[in-house]
Amino acid sequence: MADKYTVRVTGKNVDIAVGEDQSVLDGALRANQWLPHSCTQGTCGTCKLKVLCGQVDHRDSPEYTLTSEERDSGLVLACRVTPRSDLVVEPLGAVDDRVPHHPLRDHEGTVVVLDDIAAATRRLVVALDEEMHFNAGQYAELLIPGTALARQYSMANPPSEARLLEFHIKLTEGGAATEGWIFRSLAVGDRISLRGPLGQFHLVDKVEGPVILIGGGTGLAPLKSIVQHALAEDLAPELYVYHGGRREVDLYDVEFFRELDARHEHVHYRPVLSEQDWGGATGMVTDAVVADFASCKGMSAYLCGPPAMVTAAVKALKRRRMSPRLIFKEEFTVAPPLPDADAAAS
């Protein structure tokens, strides 16, 4: 372990070993030392740390997320930065230790389902060799074979199914993971490597008010996990699930959610199409929410989808006076352009 440095987080009495090609976040999460983070791609800035002592390499930390002034003042992105000496660091955001956190692990598994479920959309189910414990709403990184690349997908299964992970995958034109692998060569029976869990988009504790979940496209995945978990644990008094797509062929799991809606009085499912007249709701999914609720005061929301949808949903919910503190967001982020040096290190 000569190539490992010791990283100490202020307020935690634990020394974390971090390799010189490993990100500080990766090291901390593997040591089950929670640090705030969201995208793990250097784009959201959630994982900013202040380095109180020691030398670092910022590697590919983007200038738009971490400005040179911030670097000069000792700030780093935990998901990018790697140590060049022993470090003492301090998280900028509050470390939420009230919810359980599960350590980041490498996993292997076998593809057991690979189905087309909507236009250019596949359901991938992986049977893991060992359980992966996670909070409903979190994501994992699938490692693309033969490359140093990893791509992020939310688990759609509830945490109770810790060995059977379900992912919803949309084809990206030219995408290394989708066009180059999952929609081309991947087949049932293939072995697959992944690491997880990651992210802080989750529903863990019982909530008092109704919960509105809005998913755009495959943004439905973490919401499906959350809804199943909330039902199993009786976490929310009402669950309103909105799924937005352009045409009917973009929708999936319609029967699954219709059945939940029929079976549970407090589950409400509303698919909304923006480019097709049909028997159901039409228009932007966020407009449907605004039309359905006179006030969202006291409610909370889980939003997952393209950045424009998430932004519009936040605006719509604030218009209906939902507290921004209770709006939780997971945005699709664009994959980083260059191969990630540490992606294959683990």
Partner: peptide
């Protein structure tokens, strides 16, 4: 500073629009 901060926290929490 604390009075002003708390007042605005409460205002934006209740009336984010």
């Amino acid at each position: 500073n604390a009075v002003v901060r708390i007042a605005l926290e409460e205002l934006f929490e209740s009336i984010p629009n």
